[in-house]
Every structure is written in C-alpha cells, then in structure tokens.
Design a protein around this nucleic acid. Structure first.
Lengths: 243, 243
DNA sequence: CCCTTTATAGTCACAATGACTATAAACACG
DNA sequence: CGTGTTTATAGTCATTGTGACTATAAAGGG
C-alpha cells in the first residue's frame, strides 16, 4: 500500500463475495446453496455470491447477492447478522481468471424453501444438509468447512445461537441448536442452568407465555438478551481434551 | 461467483495486503510501522503492506512485503505465524482508486530495531507503542484497533502468547505478555498454576535449565508445547462482567 | 387412566478459581 | 557479610462452576 501509484504496478483482480448461510432444520445443520447455471462447474452446487460492484463494500455486495440469488426476504437479508469469515486468494481457485473472494457467514432461523417465495434466481436455491454437500464448485467445499467450524466455535463464546432461533424460543429449541451444530447430546438441566446463569444471554418473555409444538409440558418462552458475548463461555464437551 | 464470464461484468480492483505485526517491548505492546515516502499520506506512519502480485496468494504477498519493507530477518518472516484478520473493502478507503485490502496479524518476540539490519526500506520501519500510534495513513488506525482487540481475545483461548516470547522463556515473561496485552495485573501463583495445568501449553526445558536477567531467584525455563488451543481458556479478569 | 414425553427443580461430589500466606534463591548495598 | 529487596515457587482455603443424577410437573396418546 506504499508502492508508488503506477497502473502497471498492480494486477487488476476480480473481487467477489461468497456466503455460507446456515440454518438448523429437522435436527441437521443446513447450508443455502445454489445450482450453477453456466460454466465453469455448470450444474454443480455452489455457495451464493458474486462480484462486488464499483461503489459497494464487500458486506453490501453480500447482502445484494443474497437477495438476488436466493428467496430470502429483503427484510431478513437487511437485518441479517453477517460476519466476515476470511478471504480466499489462492491463484487458480477460479479457472477463468484471478478472483479473490471475501467469504461471509450468516445464521438464520428455519424457514420455508427459498424457491417458494419466487423471484430472482431463487428457484435454483436450496437448503442442503452440510454433511451431504459434496462436489461443490470452486473451493467452496473448503469455505463451507471453514465456516462450519467457525460457527461451532462461535457458539461457545458468543450469543450467536439465538440467531438460529425464531424471535421467541424455548430453551429446548436453543439446546437443539447447540446439539445440532456440535453434534453432541447435552444434559438438559445443566444446559438450562448454564444459560439462565449467563447474564444477558436470554430473557424470559414476561407474559407467562408458553407454547408447544407437540407433546410434553409446555415450555416457557425466551428471547435474545442484550449480551453479545458469553461470560463465562459455554464450552462444548471436551473433545478428547481432559477437562 | 455464478455470474457469466463477461469482462464488463466486474470492476477490476487493486488488491493489497496490510500487516499488523506486534511485539511486547519494555512493558508495552508495540506495532511495526513504516513511514510513507510518497503521496498520499506522505510522511505519515502506515502498516507495512503492498499489492498482491499476479501469481501470489495474499499470505505469500504478506510475507514478501514484510521482508521487503522491514528489517525482519528472512528466516523469521518465513516462520512467522500469520493470521488473517479481515478484509477491508469500503469504497474510498484509498483516495487514488478502488483498493481492497486483506489484513493480517502476526506476533513476534522482542528484537532489535528493524533499521539495524539494514536492507530494503527497513530504515523507514519502526516499532511504535500502539497507544502512541496516531495519525495513521488510510484506514490503518481501524485495522490496528481491530488487530489489537483480536490479539487480546486470542490470548484467552489459544497458545498464541508464546509467539511473543523467545524460544525458551520463563513463566514470568509469559505472564508479562498477558499483562501487557490485556493491560491488567495477574496474580502470579494463580497464573502459573493455570498455565501448568493446561496440557500442552508449555513444557519445561528438561536440563534443569534456568536463567535470569537481573535480580531475584532464577526462573525455570519453558518452551511452547504442542497444544494450539487452550482447554479450558485462560479468561481475562472480568471487565465489568460479573463472573 | 396409565404411560410416554418434555419441562423444570433440586442434590451432591468434585474441579476450577480468586485471594492469600509462606518459603526459597538470587542480587544490591551498606 | 549480613540484611533487605526482588523474583520464583509451594501451599491453603473458601467460594463458585460443573457433570452426573434424581425428582416432580404438565401436557398428549393410546
């Protein structure tokens, strides 16, 4: 950045964004993919994304592409918590030309198939279980894998899990998010004790509100609290590490 | 990334890297800065960095620029632990043209002034206390601030603190790193108990080796252990959060 | 009307932590 | 050549957090 300004001093690169948008659905972590229409990788699944326009920041471009390529509602896309994952810049990651891509991660509550809402290229967008996503275009398998492990860590020390839930949720639903992303079973009483003991993580919906989808005792409803980080963190069960 | 290949479909951007390289020196966190030689911001301090070349990845470019612009030894630059911080892409962040910059963070042990080693533009490089760094070029103040807080968090849940230390170090030196970066005092016995109880964080140098710079009882020497993450984390004293 | 299912309350032993006290081994300096 | 300062290291102790469980409550399904 301190090289003299000389048009020949730098190579013009294409700069794109890619998005790994996750949701928890039917007990499995899903990611939003689109089926590519043209070469290269025509017919293959890929992460949504596209070129950054001249007057856009990467984050603005990410929201625009997400709205254009998927059926997610504009209100949701505008309110979405987007987080930069990392930038992928290996030469050769796109066979056509030199492309540097800024990858983002987002979490959304479960919702209908994007195709149902129509519009744009939404008919080519699908929620796909992350474990079943194979043969992705470009280096998107690597991006997806990086995004997945980042989400797992984020659940430990941030309040991000509530982003997977609807505006009001039960502690059982919140626990299911953790169990799905971490792929472990958690003790229910201990989980609730930990969550309720963390100031600002969730707050009870006052109107003694309760609601249930099916069997069992109705659960109290909670909504996201003001906190953004978890103090202390909610560590996932020791993966081989003696605790 | 799934737009048809059409040269007019994307804007060519310049892509650069910027580096926030930290060290702990004389009880203060320092960052490596270079003084700019030409406009814009001629004479101002800036983070080292520069354009990515056609066949380079961002990380390769970061190492090359670091070696070219500073007096850090090639061996050190090659072995350095570089970590992507985030990518800065706001339009207008460079007055000359559209520049997207991939920022990296690195930590090095204390060492002589880069100028002493000569070569390249090293005479314009300096270690500057981060709290005294003002008037940085471009948006480098923002990058530096982001990097600083990232380093603070990283110390909590990774073994990165040892990267600030020489190959063999005392627990007192390691504690000084934490105290400097977090700007807090830590209880010495509790710190050593925690560090030694974390498997793989540090390992004692076997030869009953000890060494001291000045007064006091000589301290045992340790080197970095095989672990890369801290289980459980070494949380910084509650900043207003009730623990 | 029981039985299954889910939510929630509570218990208990143990591990981790924060705040201290105590001892050891060096050097400085009078 | 002690004495005191400085840094390292070994403990203690009360409190808190955690994992593993047990118990009770409130629904719906046969």
């Amino acid at each position: 950045m301190n090289t003299a300004y000389d048009p020949r001093a730098f190579e013009p690169f294409a700069v794109t964004v890619d998005l790994a948008v996750f949701t928890v659905r039917a007990g499995a972590l899903h990611v939003l993919l689109i089926r590519r229409g043209q070469e290269p990788y025509a017919g293959a699944w890929a992460l949504p994304g596209g070129f950054i326009l001249p007057r856009e920041s990467a984050e603005t471009a990410a929201r625009r592409e997400l709205a254009e390529e998927t059926g997610l509602s504009p209100a949701l896309v505008a309110a979405l918590h987007l987080e930069q994952l990392r930038t992928y810049s290996e030469p050769g990651r796109d066979p056509r030309m030199r492309v540097v891509s800024v990858a983002f991660t987002a979490l959304v509550p479960d919702m209908p198939e994007p195709a149902a809402e129509g519009g744009g290229d939404a008919d080519r967008a699908r929620w796909v279980p992350v474990d079943g996503a194979a043969g992705l275009a470009f280096d998107h398998a690597v991006i997806l894998s990086d995004a997945r492990s980042r989400v797992g860590s984020k659940l430990e020390y941030t309040c991000l899990a509530t982003a997977f839930c609807p505006p009001e949720f039960t502690l059982g639903e919140l626990q299911a998010v953790y169990e799905t992303v971490w792929d472990t079973a958690l003790d229910r009483p201990n989980f609730r004790r930990k969550v309720l003991a963390t100031p600002g993580f969730v707050e009870a919906v006052p109107g003694a509100a309760r609601l249930t989808g099916g069997r069992g005792k109705p659960a109290a409803l909670y909504r996201p609290g003001p906190a953004t980080v978890l103090h202390p963190p909610l560590l996932r069960p020791t993966e081989g590490h003696p605790r």
